[in-house]
């Protein structure tokens, strides 16, 4: 079973994402900001990260840069999932090492599609 870390400061979004990912047979864990996500990754690296951009304490993009600098941190497949939907943000995410990018609002079809594109399904 593959694991996915869901990072979003909204409890509701985390719950919706968790439901979708569990249906896709992922083992899930959650973090409410980039720092919590980073701590979780230092404990053990997930196969995938579904990542919000704007969060308190540490943003998604800061987390991504820290993650990629960790030993083995290039491994997890990172899919951004954010309301930021302009080219500049998307480009910044790709340059920081994001594998895919979902613009909110999302549904299970979009998550499933993006996850299979990056080889997670």
């Amino acid at each position: 079973m593959k694991s996915c870390l869901i990072v979003d400061d909204s409890k509701v979004i985390r719950m919706v994402a968790r439901k979708i990912l569990e249906e896709l047979k992922f083992e899930t864990r959650e973090a409410a900001d980039g720092q919590q996500a980073l701590d979780s990754c230092k404990e053990s690296l997930p196969d995938a990260v579904l990542l919000d951009w704007n969060m308190p304490v540490m943003s998604g993009i800061e987390f991504l840069r820290e993650l990629r600098a960790l030993p083995g941190g290039g491994g997890p497949i990172v899919v951004f999932c954010t309301t930021e939907n302009d080219i500049q943000h998307i480009q910044e995410a790709i340059e920081a090492g994001a594998n895919e990018y979902i613009m909110k609002p999302f549904d299970s079809e979009i998550i499933q599609g993006k996850f299979s594109q990056v080889g997670l399904l």
């Binding site: 939907n85 302009d86 080219i87 790709i94 994001a98 990018y101 999302f106 979009i110 599609g113 594109q117």
Partner: peptide
Amino acid sequence: SQFEVQRGLPITLLVKYFDK
């Protein structure tokens, strides 16, 4: 629409071949 470009289109191709 944003919905249409998220179905099947890899993000790298969206950035490369589309204007917002």
